[in-house]
Amino acid sequence: MGFRRTGVIGVDELARRGLLPPPERLARGPAAVAECPEEIPCNVCESSCPSGAISVDGLRGMPKIDWDRCTGCGVCVGACPGLAIFVVDLSRDPALVTIPHEFLPRPEKGREVSLLSRDGRKVGRGRVVRVFEANKTLVVTVEVPRELAMEVRAIWVD
């Protein structure tokens, strides 16, 4: 469990825990990815999902996403108190990643922003294509080079 030492979780670790959608699903369109590997007593994502695609075992458990039901709308991204849910869309080039964002200045649609990896490295730049707000959390969809779609998990307006 290296992530408990580093604060950074690897894609392989997410896959091992069943937290990643199958590649063919990702290629079909936007799908939510919950990077929530511990059993937190929380089910906010479950109650927020308009498609009934997320289930949490009681109050406690990792979110289980039914990717056939998930439409990739991003509502859970703005609802998750741990800011741990993202939406990845590999049906396009560049890919789209939807990210929770709680910093000023607010990223506006059309703006180029820095793309940050899970360990805070600037790995590229991308254009913001959609922004909406959920109780002060901005849900920002940004264009990301396809090969970085599983790496980029934050943006910075600079």
Partner: peptide, 23 residues
């Protein structure tokens, strides 16, 4: 300690903006 004490998701939030967590 050798491990982060709090929930991983709180640590991940911080690491994404480049803050080092030195266990």
């Amino acid at each position: 300690m050798r491990e982060i004490g709090g929930w991983f998701v709180h640590a991940a939030k911080l690491r994404r903006y480049g803050v080092p967590i030195l266990t």
